[in-house]
Design a protein around this nucleic acid. Structure first.
Lengths: 110, 110
DNA sequence: TTGCTCCTCACGTCACGTGAGGTGGC
DNA sequence: TTGCTCCTCACGTCACGTGAGGTGGC
């Protein structure tokens, strides 16, 4: 049972202490334990949980939405992910359009 | 001098009344006038101003950043826009990566 | 004792969203 | 008088950011 500290977890996932604190307050995850000094500790399962939450966040899901799908069936997860992929592709197309528009504007600003 | 109402401005730009109110409170723009009933009115210059602000917002600039560039020289604007385009392309690449990852995950969830 | 790290609140931030309470013409 | 539209506050929201104040080992 390898336990890591909150700081190590944050460095591993490239997120802040406050972000993890937010996940915990919303009930999305819990620290595995505390050491004798009161420092928060996380085991591998907790680390995986945090990674999953971050993955959903990167996909643009809100914390409350994540609460609704992270422990749901594969069918529900799959549907949510498929819908999200469609939205992300929409977003990507919009990004491409605005990048082009901006390029044009930059050239006009010579 | 064609004046339009706040509602018409909002419909034209596909943004909310509250969004315009926010731009105005931050000092980014002002209503041209009010009619005798106190309704807010905007002339073509104000409409163009609002369009420009929305364009910068779509590009991801914060309101305070917009305050710093909207009335600046073309050189300053150009630099800000070029930096932003680079960031948007970064964002686009990240989006592509996460879309692929999600597709892979969806297939694993069969 | 000093410096360093961690912890737990809790207010701040950003760009609006969402009423609340009031006005004016029809 | 009723219904509809607009207006101006101002609190709420979301996901953290940023101290504040305190603890414990070295």
């Amino acid at each position: 049972m390898n336990l890591i500290t909150l700081k190590e977890l944050c460095e591993m996932l490239h997120i802040s202490r406050r972000t993890i604190q937010c996940y915990e307050k919303e009930g999305l995850m819990v620290a595995t334990n505390k050491n004798k000094y009161g420092h928060l500790l996380y085991d591998e399962k907790a680390v995986e949980r945090a990674k999953t939450i971050k993955f959903f966040r990167d996909l643009g899901f809100k914390i409350k939405e994540i609460k609704g799908i992270i422990d749901a069936s594969n069918d529900i997860k799959k549907e949510a992910l498929e819908n999200r992929v469609k939205e992300l592709e929409q977003k990507k197309r919009k990004l491409e359009v605005i990048i082009k528009e901006t390029r044009r504007l930059i050239n006009e600003l010579i």
